[in-house]
Simulated scan of single mutants.
Amino acid sequence: MDFYKIYQNKKILVTGATGFKGAWLCLWLHILGAKVFAIGYSPNKNKNLFYSLNLHKKIKINILDIRDKKKLTLYVYKIKPQFIFHLAAQPLILEGYKEPYKTYEINTLGTLNILEISRKSKFVRSLICVTSDKCYESNSSTTGFKETDRLGGVDPYSGSKAAAEIIIKTYIESFQKKQKILGIASARAGNVMGGGDKSQNRLIPDIVNSLYKKNKIFIRNPNFNRPWQHVIDPLYGYLILGANLYKDPKKYSGAWNFGTEKNTVTSVLTIVRYAIKNWGWGEVTIKKQKQFYEQTNLQLNIEKTKKILKWKPKYKIKDSVKLTIEWYKKVLNKTTTAEEITKKQILDYMK
């Protein structure tokens, strides 16, 4: 698509680059011919994906803590990016219960630092802060959460994402409208899957680990429904949004949902069964354990994004699971490299 050309030779900063979505985005931007700069954090269980994609040889990576405003400012002003994709976060609900203070600090203060640095700069043109579909307060909606729905959260992770959204909105309302150069947007996506995710207590990595070791797959909430999608779909949306922000910051600043189509939420048990079918073997059992609060049903309303950005998810849930399992099977069995299959899946999507 023509909008891809806007990224050629542009300086782009990706925070959270050593994370799952961050690594996929960095490779995609590199394929598009962008000058990619990356911020990562250590320790990070997903950093192996970043290095297995050979991104450390393709782009410049700086390991630093986004909570450190001084170091972050120095780095951003050194590279002077025109685009910033802010993905750095503490992304896990269970980790939020274990480390609530850390979760709030990373997800709110880190976002605030990025916003403040971008606001004061004269070079950042397009800033996308990636949050989560968990930022909405549960309202038992059957039509899906709209961008204008009330923010909230019962657990620390969800609360931290809602707080980040409030901070983002205040910057848009207070400063962005007075600046004609900088566009600020938040991107809210749901549960993603794809090759290379190694986060703990996340469904797909747990499934693959069990299948590869020929162990039973244990699941704790078989009937929980989620708007599952392949990681490529929301990333495609971020790229469209980033390009539009660059061209017309006033029009495209604000909140955007990148979810699935209506009535496509899928249960955990169904995902497991799809994975087993594509792997060719597997057993599943329900494991009762201490329950933390998680929303039973989640669905984003993507009508605004479809109408204005002309974005919609391309892959159905069966396609997403198939692509994900294919990635793991080939990489784990060493029939291809992580870099080769990730690049192929991105190029196939672009076609």
Results as ranks from 00 to 15, higher is better:
residue 262 K to Y: 14
residue 263 N to L: 11
residue 258 F to G: 02
residue 268 V to H: 10
residue 289 Q to R: 15
residue 282 G to W: 09
residue 285 T to D: 10
residue 274 Y to T: 02
residue 285 T to I: 11
residue 276 I to F: 04
residue 269 L to A: 13
residue 259 G to N: 05
residue 252 Y to R: 02
residue 251 K to F: 06
residue 247 K to W: 08
residue 241 L to E: 00
residue 284 V to S: 13
residue 289 Q to A: 15
residue 270 T to L: 09
residue 248 D to C: 11
residue 244 N to H: 12
residue 273 R to L: 11
residue 241 L to T: 00
residue 251 K to T: 15
residue 263 N to T: 04
residue 244 N to A: 12
residue 237 G to L: 00
residue 248 D to G: 06
residue 267 S to K: 12
residue 278 N to K: 14
residue 286 I to F: 14
residue 281 W to Y: 14
residue 260 T to Q: 07
residue 260 T to N: 02
residue 243 A to Q: 06
residue 272 V to H: 04
residue 236 Y to N: 09
residue 281 W to E: 13
residue 251 K to H: 06
residue 236 Y to D: 04
residue 242 G to D: 01
residue 260 T to Y: 04
residue 250 K to H: 07
residue 292 F to L: 06
residue 262 K to H: 12
residue 277 K to E: 13
residue 257 N to E: 07
residue 269 L to H: 14
residue 293 Y to N: 01
residue 265 V to W: 03
residue 291 Q to A: 12
residue 282 G to A: 07
residue 274 Y to M: 08
residue 264 T to F: 13
residue 293 Y to G: 00
residue 254 G to H: 03
residue 250 K to Q: 10
residue 269 L to S: 10
residue 274 Y to F: 11
residue 284 V to E: 01
residue 241 L to S: 02
residue 274 Y to H: 03
residue 281 W to S: 15
residue 248 D to N: 15
residue 250 K to P: 02
residue 262 K to D: 12
residue 270 T to P: 10
residue 283 E to H: 10
residue 265 V to R: 11
residue 237 G to Q: 00
residue 267 S to R: 13
residue 292 F to Q: 06
residue 249 P to C: 03
residue 267 S to C: 05
residue 251 K to N: 03
residue 260 T to I: 09
residue 252 Y to I: 02
residue 289 Q to H: 12
residue 247 K to H: 10
residue 280 G to N: 03
residue 280 G to V: 01
residue 286 I to C: 14
residue 267 S to Q: 11
residue 271 I to F: 04
residue 257 N to H: 12
residue 258 F to S: 00
residue 275 A to W: 13
residue 243 A to Y: 05
residue 275 A to N: 10
residue 252 Y to K: 00
residue 261 E to M: 11
residue 241 L to P: 07
residue 278 N to Q: 08
residue 243 A to S: 13
residue 236 Y to E: 07
residue 265 V to G: 13
residue 246 Y to Q: 04
residue 264 T to V: 11
residue 254 G to E: 03
residue 259 G to K: 02
residue 250 K to G: 01
residue 274 Y to A: 12
residue 273 R to I: 05
residue 247 K to M: 12
residue 291 Q to S: 13
residue 246 Y to K: 04
residue 273 R to M: 08
residue 289 Q to L: 09
residue 264 T to Y: 12
residue 260 T to E: 15
residue 275 A to S: 08
residue 265 V to Y: 07
residue 268 V to L: 05
residue 246 Y to C: 05
residue 252 Y to V: 00
residue 287 K to N: 15
residue 285 T to G: 07
residue 291 Q to V: 15
residue 258 F to C: 07
residue 258 F to I: 05
residue 289 Q to K: 13
residue 260 T to R: 15
residue 248 D to A: 15
residue 236 Y to Q: 08
residue 274 Y to G: 06
residue 238 Y to K: 02
residue 271 I to Y: 06
residue 280 G to Y: 07
residue 290 K to P: 03
residue 272 V to K: 00
residue 239 L to G: 00
residue 237 G to W: 00
residue 289 Q to E: 14
residue 279 W to Y: 13
residue 241 L to H: 01
residue 249 P to R: 05
residue 260 T to G: 01
residue 264 T to P: 03
residue 253 S to P: 06
residue 280 G to Q: 11
residue 259 G to P: 01
residue 287 K to W: 07
residue 291 Q to W: 11
residue 275 A to G: 06
residue 266 T to D: 01
residue 292 F to R: 10
residue 273 R to D: 08
residue 239 L to F: 05
residue 268 V to F: 09
residue 239 L to M: 04
residue 283 E to N: 13
